[in-house]
Computed example of a mutant assay.
Amino acid sequence: MQRRTVLKGAAVGGVVVLGAGFWALPTSVAPAALNLQGAEQVLSGLVGRELVSLKGWTPAEVFNHCAQSIDYSMDGYPELKPAWFRHSVGPLAFSVFSARGAMRHNLHEAIPGATPLAEPASTAAALARLQGAFARFAGYQGELHPHFAYGALNHEEYAQAHVLHLYNHLSLIRSADQSA
């Protein structure tokens, strides 16, 4: 009985925090449409440019991280949050991000159980890896695996999650000539 009360309290607390968080999300215009084509357009615009990170991960690490997330949606995440989280707080968070058209999350936190972000090491190769992951996802017809936090998502929801995730990470990446 006590465990159920704690879980209910955590879920209600999560709703309050997420509701407040909804209004704290950025309201700026996304760099492109919130779909796979928009993401590809943005990534194509980065090809051949010298990129820097304002803080945290390097651009190559960011691209590898985003590619991992896309690949894991098709291949399975190495670790999942507890079932109660993936059926309550996680989907609620995704619905807030989806409704707001923006995501805000810890931009330096690796996917649980994910491999290191070191390969490929060059920005150009990591960007190509990410573009390949988006292309693979766009053509993917198989069953998608549950997101480690959001739980079960269909192809359209996953596409939106991947694009919002990318755009959130790109908020810390600039062209070298714009970083000053």
Rank of each mutant, 00 (worst) to 15 (best):
G76F: 12
N35F: 14
H108E: 05
E79R: 09
A114R: 08
A33S: 11
P91G: 01
G38L: 02
W84K: 01
T58M: 00
P78Y: 05
A114P: 08
A33C: 05
V17R: 12
A20I: 08
H87F: 01
H105A: 09
L117V: 06
L43H: 07
V29Q: 15
S53C: 00
E50Y: 10
P78S: 05
R129P: 04
W23L: 14
L117D: 03
G21V: 03
N64I: 05
V62I: 12
Y72C: 12
L127T: 02
V29W: 15
L127S: 02
P91N: 02
T115N: 13
A124W: 04
G21H: 03
A121F: 04
L107M: 06
V42S: 03
L25E: 05
G56M: 02
A20Y: 06
T123Y: 03
A83G: 02
N35S: 13
A125F: 13
G56A: 01
D71Y: 12
G19Y: 00
G45N: 10
A39K: 13
A39Q: 13
V42L: 03
K81V: 13
P78M: 04
G19D: 00
S88A: 12
R86L: 09
H87Y: 01
R104C: 05
T123I: 03
A114K: 07
Q37N: 14
K55S: 13
K81L: 15
F97L: 09
D75F: 09
D71T: 14
R49L: 14
F97K: 06
V89M: 11
W57D: 00
F94G: 06
A83K: 06
S28D: 12
G56P: 00
T27Q: 06
W23S: 13
G48Y: 08
H105C: 08
A124E: 11
G56N: 01
S44K: 11
S122V: 09
G101H: 02
E50A: 13
A125C: 14
R104S: 09
Q41A: 03
I111P: 05
W84N: 01
Q37M: 10
S98Q: 14
A126D: 05
A83T: 04
G21F: 02
V42C: 02
V52H: 02
A20D: 03
G48M: 07
N35Q: 13
P59T: 02
P116G: 09
T115K: 14
L54N: 00
A67Y: 07
